[in-house]
């Protein structure tokens, strides 16, 4: 094990996978200088054929990823901010997600799209979306939201080797966060949630970027005598329903924490899964801590008022841990 930052872990995964397979190529916006640090050093190491700065043209970046993958390459494309998914969306929703189906399975599309998502840093409305739900709804695309450096590295390596298109969403608030990463070859399977904290009283289901607020909430709950279990949903598609339901059956109480807007969020989908498959174990209503259908305002105090935090989670958990509200 060695201690690494989240972005550093991603950078290592990219270096290792490009080293491993010479047919792996990477292109996107500002990948040469690496605004976020994740692609740093790749151009120097692998050269301008395999690592390319593109113009600012998300529609073409996403479409080229499809074409180059269809023509035999393993493609990593960088869209910078996940808000720019919207400008590239035809190639993502109409081509990338559908080409394997439409061609009757003639081809695989080994594509990994990188983008940084989420708010909390006064980046304002067009650079702060947590828009994994629009990707979850496409079908045919894996949606990954790792929350720790170890998972960031291990899941990215697995995603790059996968023959399905995937979006690897980097939580903007976690980029500088450190954590232990296993040395040597480290692969994390997709579609497996991790139990980040064992507990008996309430299940806190954290989606990607929400892990720190959730961990802080668990500490506060512990001080109040509530023993919370944390499920880190690091993969949204595929979704590890089994681990979620198992925890819900154990605690009977659930709060789902998701930085997406509430309507049709990952949280609302997970709540639906729990209603379908975990109903017998529920001892209280399922609560969601999400963004209440607003875009992120710029002013730090205004953003903080909207952004899910530990107190919101504690409040939600406490509301369902009172015996009298459990019906």
């Amino acid at each position: 094990m060695s201690r690494k930052r989240y972005t550093q872990a991603i950078n290592e995964a990219l270096h290792e996978e490009m080293e491993r397979d010479p047919k792996t190529i990477l292109f996107g916006e500002d990948v040469a200088l690496a605004v976020f640090g994740d692609t740093r050093g790749l151009l120097d190491k692998f050269g301008p054929k395999r690592v390319r700065n593109t113009p600012i043209c998300e529609a073409t970046i996403a479409g080229m990823a499809v074409g180059a993958a269809a023509a035999g390459y393993r493609v990593i494309a960088h869209l910078l901010f996940s808000n720019f998914i919207y400008t590239g969306f035809d190639a993502i929703a109409n081509q990338m997600a559908k080409l394997r189906l439409m061609t009757g399975g003639q081809i695989d599309l080994p594509i990994t799209v990188l983008a940084v998502y989420g708010g909390g840093a006064s980046q304002a409305a067009q650079h702060s979306d947590a828009n994994h739900p629009v990707l979850m709804n496409l079908g045919g695309i894996d949606v990954l939201v790792p929350a720790t450096p170890a998972d960031a590295k291990g899941m990215l390596k697995t995603a790059i080797r996968s023959n399905r298109p995937s979006f690897f969403l980097e939580a903007s608030g976690l980029g500088a966060v450190g954590g232990e990463v296993p040395d040597g070859e480290h692969l994390v399977p997709l579609g497996k949630a991790s139990v980040a904290r064992d507990g008996m009283d309430v299940t806190l289901i954290s989606v990607g970027s929400m892990i720190r607020a959730t961990q802080n909430a668990a500490k506060k709950l512990a001080e109040a005598g509530v023993d919370a279990e944390i499920i880190d949903v690091r993969s949204l598609v595929p979704l590890d329903e089994r681990t979620i339901i198992k925890s819900v059956m154990k605690t009977g109480r659930t709060v789902i924490i998701d930085e997406a807007r509430d309507m049709c969020s990952a949280a609302s989908h997970i709540a639906a899964v729990i209603a379908d498959k975990g109903f017998a174990g529920l001892r209280a209503p399922v609560r969601r801590v999400t963004v209440n259908n607003s875009s992120m305002p710029y002013a730090p105090n205004a953003e903080a008022a909207i952004f899910p935090n530990a107190d919101d989670i504690v409040r939600a958990a406490t509301s369902i841990c009172q015996p009298e509200t459990a019906a």
């Binding site: 529609a59 073409t60 080229m64 190639a91």
Partner: peptide, 13 residues
């Protein structure tokens, strides 16, 4: 829809 896909295939070529 084919424009960027063909451009990507040209990159592969």
């Amino acid at each position: 829809g084919g424009l960027a896909i063909a451009t990507g295939a040209a990159l592969a070529a």
